[in-house]
Simulated assay, not measured.
Amino acid sequence: MIPEQTPAFIDFEASSLDLINSYPIEVGVCMPDGKLHNWLIRPDDHWHDWSDSAEAIHGISRLRLAKEGRPVAEVARQLNQLLSGQVFCDAWTFDSFWLHRLFRAAGEPAAFQLESVTVLLQPGQVECWPGIREQVIAELGLPVHRAANDALILQKTWQRVICRGEAAEQ
């Protein structure tokens, strides 16, 4: 059984993994009802970092961001309209950095708090998370390292981990 209070999940893709210079290039959200939202983010004028190896992983080019990316202020505004309370991610150090960069460039605060999915889990659930995540990825057949797909994978993994924990207790 899936708990009644399914949280929202968020994921970012970024220009690189450099925690000083990188910036978000894509953000995806999976809402409690499973609805997905996704935005490519046009880099702010002050953002210059880029990693070809990161591009090879997520497949999003600078040219595509320039053509299809939404302005940072628009993405921040839409996230604030969509989200409130706690929103969960699986790479808090990176995701919180990119969330902060996005909202700082937009000139407004986030209307929600980012938390690690691990705060929702018991120690045994944290241990089984990686294996279950791999099962979910295989079953969904979605490309990883795209923000909305990864947010959905987070939700489905969380649901399965929580269900497994409840079944083990009975």
Results as ranks from 00 to 15, higher is better:
Q159I: 03
H37L: 15
V27L: 01
L102D: 13
W92D: 06
L36D: 00
W129N: 07
A111T: 10
F103E: 12
L140C: 06
H58M: 07
I162W: 11
A8E: 01
L63F: 14
H100I: 02
L83C: 02
K156D: 09
H48C: 10
G85F: 00
W47T: 10
V87T: 05
I41T: 04
W39G: 11
H46D: 15
E115P: 01
E108H: 04
F12V: 00
S84C: 10
S16V: 03
Q78G: 05
R77L: 14
E74N: 09
E166K: 06
L82Q: 11
E169D: 11
S96F: 06
Q81S: 14
L120I: 12
E68S: 11
V136T: 10
L17K: 03
E139D: 15
H48T: 12
P43N: 07
N80I: 03
R133A: 06
P7T: 00
W98S: 01
D18N: 15
I153Q: 00
L121S: 01
L65Y: 13
Q170L: 14
C128H: 14
R164S: 11
I60T: 08
C89F: 07
I41F: 01
A151M: 06
Q155H: 04
A73R: 15
T93C: 01
R146I: 04
I132G: 02
W158A: 01
